[in-house]
């Protein structure tokens, strides 16, 4: 059966009446389709997740059996000033970094989606920064660009601002350079946006054009609503990933979160506690606090999505 016939069938059904609801749930089929995932969860996920939850109530130094310490780790969460500082750093990063990167990615995806010459090349070039990812080369380069004698200051010099400021080494601007590094790797989100844009049936635009809708109107009433599931995805994952951001700060500060803890991301601190100081019990408590925080943001996101995300089903 061809797709075209199917669609015709679907249209007939639609004309015939409201969508038929199946009475039987798809439990069996779900079991089949979810089988790999379920095995994975049972064997690889649930155990370690539960173990880390249990460890959060212990003193576990990796080399000796964990010792139960009750709520001691959670009590420490309240008084740990480095933790509070790392939360501040991470929230700043999420609040500024996520919207900026998404805006850049969406704008460029929209521009690229409208046909233009050489766009395959642009698309590939824009994606390059994401390929380099966590390369040590990036750490070296970032210093050369945002250091006191760096390229960025030379550029500022060209437009008449003469400064020797080391953006990467000043505690008040170091985080900014890492946010820039994040925005710079907008390619991943852009690719997802592009794929989403390509899923919007072209006949919608044709119909709209026939009706004489302006480009802006087409964007407002077709592109944007139909892209909302993907915008939502990028937003949810962007927030989750930003809260868990590790690699960029690790590479740029060589794992220290410096200068003066100004780039001490939450997971970087967690890593320092777990693997640097061998306090895996406390690191587990930190992990579950993070889960609660991210979980809350994600739940809010899902709740809010009802009001703005448009699904075809």
């Amino acid at each position: 059966m061809s797709l075209m016939e199917l669609q015709a069938l679907a249209r007939d059904r639609k004309k015939a009446g409201p969508r038929a609801k199946e009475a039987t749930p798809d439990n069996k089929a779900a079991l089949v389709f979810l089988a790999p995932w379920l095995i994975g969860v049972a064997v690889l996920t649930v155990g370690p997740l539960a173990a880390s939850l249990v460890l959060a109530f212990t003193n576990y130094n990796l080399l000796q059996p964990p010792k139960f310490t009750g709520l001691a780790n959670f009590a420490r969460l309240l008084s740990d000033t480095r933790l509070h500082h790392s939360l501040e750093v991470t929230f700043t990063y999420v609040v500024i970094g996520v919207p900026s990167a998404l805006a850049v990615a969406l704008l460029l995806a929209l521009l690229l989606d409208k046909g233009m010459r050489g766009l395959a090349i642009y698309r590939s070039i824009f994606y390059l920064p994401s390929l380099l990812g966590s390369s040590v080369a990036i750490a070296v380069l970032w210093r050369l660009v945002f250091g006191g004698q760096g390229l960025f200051n030379s550029f500022l010099g060209l437009i008449g601002i003469d400064t020797q400021k080391s953006w990467i080494a000043n505690p008040s601007t170091a985080l900014g350079t890492i946010i820039l590094l994040h925005v710079w790797t907008f390619g991943s989100s852009m690719v997802i946006f592009l794929a989403g844009l390509r899923q919007i049936p072209r006949e919608f635009y044709e119909a709209a054009a026939t009706d004489g809708a302006t480009t802006w109107r087409q964007f407002r009433s077709i592109t944007l609503p139909l892209l909302t599931p993907i915008i939502f995805f990028n937003l949810v994952l962007g927030i989750i990933n930003a809260f868990s951001a590790f690699t960029q700060a690790f590479v740029v500060s060589n794992g220290t979160g410096g200068p003066s803890d100004s780039t001490l991301f939450y997971t970087l601190y967690l890593y320092q506690e777990g693997f640097g100081s061998y306090r895996m019990g406390y690191a587990s408590a930190l992990a579950w606090l993070l889960v609660v925080i991210i979980g809350a943001f994600t739940a809010i996101n899902f709740w809010a999505s009802r009001f703005w995300v448009h699904y075809e089903d």
Partner: peptide, 11 residues
């Protein structure tokens, strides 16, 4: 979704 949120270092 939870599996996305838990840092790899503790599991």
């Amino acid at each position: 979704l939870l599996t996305l949120m838990i840092p790899i270092h503790v599991v």
